[in-house]
Design a protein around this nucleic acid. Sequence first.
RNA 1: CGGGGUGUAGCGUAGCCCGGUAUCGCGCUUGGUUUGGGACCAAGAGGUCGUAGGUUCGAAUCCUGCCACCCCGACCA
Length: 490
Amino acid sequence: MSKSLPSRSENYSEWYNELVKRADLAENSAVRGCMVIKPYGFSIWEKMQRALDDMFKETSHTNAYFPLFIPKSYLSKEASHVEGFAKECAVVTHYRLKNDPNGGGVIVDPEAKLEEELIVRPTSETVIWSTYKNWIQSYRDLPLLINQWANVVRWEMRTRLFLRTAEFLWQEGHTAHSSKQEAIEETEQMLEVYANFAENFMAVPVIKGIKTANERFAGAEETYCIEAMMQDGKALQAGTSHFLGQNFAKAFDVKFLNKENQQEFVWGTSWGVSTRLMGALIMAHSDDQGLVLPPKLAPIQVVIVPIFKGEEQLNNIKSKIDPIVKELRSKGVSVKFDTTDNQSPGFKFAEYELKGVPIRLAIGNRDIENGTIELARRDTKSKQSMPFEGIVDSVVNTLDEIQHAIYQKALDFRTENTHQVNTWEEFQIQIEKGGFISAHWDGTSETEEQIKELTKATIRCIPLDAKEEVGTCVYSGKPSGRRVIFARAY
RNA sequence: CGGGGUGUAGCGUAGCCCGGUAUCGCGCUUGGUUUGGGACCAAGAGGUCGUAGGUUCGAAUCCUGCCACCCCGACCA
């Protein structure tokens, strides 16, 4: 194994692939397109889950679990929904194996064909709405605010660890409401939750917006999204929230009796984020030395590396450090005190940098004599000798600083790489340089498709905060009322 | 599904053209010396050469089929 990673500038995607493996986040599995999420990677995902789940609970949602398998007939009930997912569904056709009479292990028992084939869920709208039909009778049953943490399967042609895998983990919220207005508010609220999570926990700035018809979720009336910029200038959709209108209510006949004793179809939403966020996290902050993790999601926030000769020195260091570890933990800081002696300090430094540990403390005999300790920041690679007294406060403050600093760095990067463009010539030049392009668009799918064909750039979103501004479409020259965000995307 | 590439120890590789059962590095084990930015010495363990068949006295090497994975396209969160 070579010591250093491929560099981002030389080969961004190779850098990403190597980093994911070398930092022990995930690896490819025996099944094509599926990944094994390794303990270190899963710890980060667990932290994401925890933070998000708390936010869902704070907004009155409760968790439940719906089955992995969906009867085939369900999927065909909502026309555009089927169309959107049909091409990437895994199908269960049999329920039994048997020994191959000709030897050679097991074969599918042809006798055991399922009467109705089952689809492995690519998303759960259909099972959930077929269940909601039984749960909802009156306006008093609404709103119904449910989330589930689950795995889903989408049989993708080309996969990449975390960014696009055949099976992935996610959460999907599915809510039902008595009014259109309330459902829209829910959709917007959850988008806000996602944006808040991305910015405050992942330290990734996002643009909140609405998808164009082309990019909209199959079965939704409106798809809201948060879009983030990766260090190669490409966009990554980090979360989506859909206003489903009454589409699924109609498809699954979910009605409620309103206060006026009239039957009405309910209004729905669904919203999700997936293990793809791991990809966003990695690509937003990390450098050629390895991961850079925001303190709020780092499995290990502080690593302490002792520098010692022999057991006596180590014990001496331990007696100083053990109380520090205790105190940090009491303040909710996760600390690893790495006292193993089979690796040199230098090796450990490199290793914890690769894994993105935000703060490293190093302490040796010299420090003990001077009453100091060395504090190194992963994000800036800076290190300084600090007084041993008060180190706990310094660590806590520095963690906070790092959280803000990496957000600011990502925000500055995005600002530098976002350009207003007014002509088609400019557009073609700028898109090759990467980044986001803010430009006028005439609102038609034809134009959007043309631009995609010519430049591989898609409309990432119509920003929610887009100013009303008279302009002309960058491609067609037709009138436009606001700018939209174009980019090449993951 | 098209185009390209690769399968040799846990990982990365040499050998293949020109057949004689396998090279080197990392990692691992044991012992010793080390430790302020990826330590060193010594001794070890570890391989159905992707798979099935063929040619041959003999196949990692030549031939054929199959499988898997990676990269590039069409599809997608």
